[in-house]
């Protein structure tokens, strides 16, 4: 029950919104949408032709009392050639358009290195910016108007990075690094989800992409590189102590502290994120405390164990984490 309530309350507002293959926000997505319109038009013509013929046959040639056996027409090579060749030509046309769209959507990369590396984990996303060295989790920041190359990788099983408004999806396969071009044009928040079944919490592996004006993105990137200030408020200081004590640091990284592990999401600037649990719940003190106290109640099966903290302990840690800006 608690789970449902927390998830539901968080879901009001911007946590989730409408997405669509047709709501194209990048040239890549636009080119796919255009191809889809043509494909749908072709499909509609073929479907209507077949349906019309079937219905016509059903109406015209329904047996009526007194009908004898009809003329036994064994076939007509000319007609049969017609319905072999015409569909083949239509498909050839579609194939040409397909090849063209492929080049727009995912052209060969050459020697270009990815601008950001997406590493999928069971059931969260890690984002690494190789040029600046920023590492973050679950919310992907990108500058508007630039053609970005995403490296798509996996740390465990196969996942898939899919944000319909931004275009193609790409599998994250262990041992098989992939790439994906995305050129976001408008600033805003775009939502997606893991699209390859990856185990218990596949359904809760949301993607949140925040496209910013280039200056704002540069600022964000710079801020990420600074280690957060040490805690000052009493609760936050207690929380920082508990974080080291309660094995949190066996799995998480917080820059400037002893916590260096990379098993779970990087928490260095957790307070900057809109959501926790890969777009599961809004990032606020109450939700965070609940997550820390019992992540399994919010995301059953996830790889963060219930560490049996008291409510007060969880709250102190939450206060500490919410100070990490």
């Amino acid at each position: 029950m608690t789970m449902t309530n927390a998830v539901m309350s968080a879901m009001g507002g911007q946590m989730h919104h409408h997405t669509s293959v047709f709501n194209a926000q990048t040239p890549q997505a636009q080119s796919i949408a255009n191809l889809f319109y043509i494909d749908l038009a072709i499909a509609a013509v073929i479907f209507l032709t077949v349906t019309a013929l079937v219905i016509a046959a059903v109406i015209r040639f329904r047996a009526r009392p007194g009908d004898g056996e009809p003329y036994q027409d064994p076939g007509n090579p000319k007609l049969e050639t017609l319905w072999t060749v015409v569909p083949a030509l239509i498909l050839l046309f579609l194939l040409v358009l397909t090849a063209r769209a492929m080049f727009i959507v995912n052209p060969p990369v050459g020697t270009r290195k990815p601008d950001v590396i997406v590493v999928a984990h069971q059931w969260w996303w890690e984002y690494r910016y190789p040029s600046s060295g920023v590492v973050t989790a679950n919310e992907l920041h990108m500058p508007a108007g630039t053609n970005w190359l995403l490296g798509i990788q996996s740390a465990d099983v196969i996942h898939d990075f899919w944000v319909p408004d931004l275009g193609a999806k790409m599998d994250a396969i262990p041992g098989h690094p992939n790439v994906l071009w995305i050129t976001p044009q408008k600033t805003g928040t775009y939502l997606g989800t893991c699209a390859e079944y990856c185990g218990a919490e596949h359904a809760m592996m949301g993607i949140r992409v925040i496209v910013q004006p280039p200056e704002e993105f540069a600022q964000w990137e710079k801020a990420q590189l600074h280690a957060p200030a040490p805690p000052v408020a009493a609760a936050a200081v207690r929380g920082a102590g508990l974080f080291e004590e309660k094995t949190c640091m066996n799995c998480h990284n917080i820059a400037g502290t002893k916590a260096r592990a990379l098993v779970g999401p990087d928490l260095t600037h957790l307070a900057d994120r809109d959501t926790i649990g890969s777009n599961l719940i809004a990032n606020n003190l109450t939700n965070l405390a609940q997550w820390i106290a019992d992540p399994q109640s919010l995301k059953p099966g996830c790889n963060m164990p219930n560490l049996r903290l008291s409510g007060a302990e969880a709250e102190d840690i939450a206060v500490y984490l919410e100070s990490l800006k």
């Binding site: 796919i32 191809l35 889809f36 073929i46 479907f47 077949v50 498909l91 769209a101 999806k169 790409m170």
Partner: peptide, 25 residues
């Protein structure tokens, strides 16, 4: 005849690779 045609047409959609990139899974 009609239902299989619909299934066939959605199948062709997946053969147009960029559409597969959006719609698969």
């Amino acid at each position: 005849l009609i239902q299989f045609t619909i299934g066939g047409l959605s199948g062709i959609t997946f053969a147009a690779i960029p559409l597969d990139w959006q719609l698969t899974d």
